[in-house]
């Protein structure tokens, strides 16, 4: 197993797979962030400033 981890071709794919997973998740959150309603975003952004 060790030698396969070291040398065989499938290991070369892992970075692409990792990138794919991350990109997929990242894009889904980008879409979510930019479809967030303005009033909701404003409300969330103001939370630290609310004194009550």
């Amino acid at each position: 197993m060790y030698k396969r981890v070291l040398y065989e071709n499938w290991a070369d794919w892992v970075p692409y797979l990792a990138f794919g997973v991350t990109a997929l998740v990242f894009l889904s959150f980008v879409v979510r962030a930019f479809t967030l309603r303005r009033e909701r975003a404003d409300h969330m952004a103001r939370l630290p400033l609310e004194e009550e």
Partner: peptide
């Protein structure tokens, strides 16, 4: 935001910032 008495520039950007940092 407390120090400058203004909300964060972009809450949307903060969402992207968080999830991309955590994942990457």
């Amino acid at each position: 935001p407390k120090a400058v008495e203004r909300p964060v520039y972009s809450y949307r950007l903060s969402i992207v910032h968080f999830w991309s940092l955590v994942f990457i």
